[in-house]
């Protein structure tokens, strides 16, 4: 495998990994596969697009001028920060309107999955309604790739990779070193028992949605920066997200990130060897292989 495939794969995989962490957290704590997660990613990207456009026009050219080697000005990082808050708000709103009432009624897992499927299509079509299906870009700047040891990557790509790694480490520390992280793990283990032990389960649920949405938003902004912003971007990423979450083992944050990178490298290798039109097949092949060979995933526990 050429080193260039590895670089491309790691960059794409870091976005998949960030999204997969959200999927794996909601899956392990709320106990259902959320089909709307891909669309949180897309909404995050569009929130950042709208905000960065507004910031750019408010501040004149001052915020739009590219920072150093990157293709975007200060308006994008500021907008991305605000967009994470908005995406978290969106995830909490969907939970308050849809998943929360269903949970309280004691609906079965599969009703929640179905509701998330309905939410996914609604969210996606709302984006298409608002922004049309035309692709958007954060910036029109062209970037020259940096060369190192026979590989090429743009500064934007390297920055995304770095941000993704920092975020994963932060989430890992949050889960393992803080009180709320411990509470989250307790609820994942046994919600009833955690509640009896004084854990505010509803607060944990809100934290999980917010955390998953923040990561989804960051992944969406990266995908928008490196590729393009389309209403369908969430749908296209959904299967890779699920494949990575299951490959990593449900509930495992490092597992989700590592698996995201594996899926990303697999996609890059497929594009190079077989052809770009088969890229979307990689996630399915990985999914089938992991369900056949090791359904609990790389770092998961076998609990059926």
């Amino acid at each position: 495998m050429s080193p260039q495939i590895l670089v491309d794969g790691l960059i794409a995989g870091s976005m998949i990994g960030l999204g997969a962490i959200g999927v794996t957290l909601t899956y392990s704590i709320l106990r259902f596969a959320n089909f709307a997660h891909g669309d949180y990613l897309a909404w995050g990207a569009y929130f950042a697009l709208a905000l960065s456009g507004a910031l750019g026009s408010l501040a004149g050219g001052a915020l739009a001028a590219p920072i150093g080697p990157f293709s975007f000005g200060w308006s994008l990082p500021l907008a991305a920060l605000a967009a994470t808050a908005l995406t978290a708000g969106l995830a909490l709103l969907v939970d308050a309107l849809l998943f929360g009432p269903l949970r309280r009624r004691g609906s079965s897992v599969i009703i929640l999955v179905m509701a998330s499927f309905g939410a996914a299509l609604t969210l996606r079509s709302l984006l298409e309604f608002t922004f049309t299906s035309k692709p958007f870009y954060y910036t029109g700047e062209l970037q020259i790739a940096v060369r190192f040891a026979g590989m090429r990557a743009t500064p934007d790509q390297l920055l995304s990779l770095a941000v993704a790694l920092v975020l994963v480490i932060l989430v890992h520390l949050l889960l393992t070193r803080t009180a709320i992280g411990r509470e989250m793990r307790a609820v994942a283990e046994n919600p009833g028992l955690a509640g009896v032990a004084g854990v505010d389960v509803r607060r944990v649920v809100r934290t999980v949605w917010a955390l998953g949405a923040v990561l989804a938003c960051m992944a969406g902004v990266m995908a928008g920066l490196l590729i393009q912003i389309r209403p369908q971007m969430g749908l296209d990423l959904l299967l890779p997200l699920f494949a990575a979450a299951i490959l990593g083992g449900i509930g495992s944050v490092p597992g989700a990130m590592l698996a995201g990178l594996i899926v990303g490298v697999g996609e890059a290798a497929t594009v190079a060897v077989v052809g770009a039109q088969w890229r979307a097949a990689v996630a399915f092949v990985i999914l089938v292989a992991i369900l056949l060979l090791r359904p609990q995933g790389l770092f998961g526990r076998s609990d059926g």
Partner: peptide, 20 residues
Amino acid sequence: LTVRLRADYLAIATFGVAVM
């Protein structure tokens, strides 16, 4: 492939089939 696994793995696998 999925019937013996968790209920929502079937959902994810069938979604994958549709994509494929």
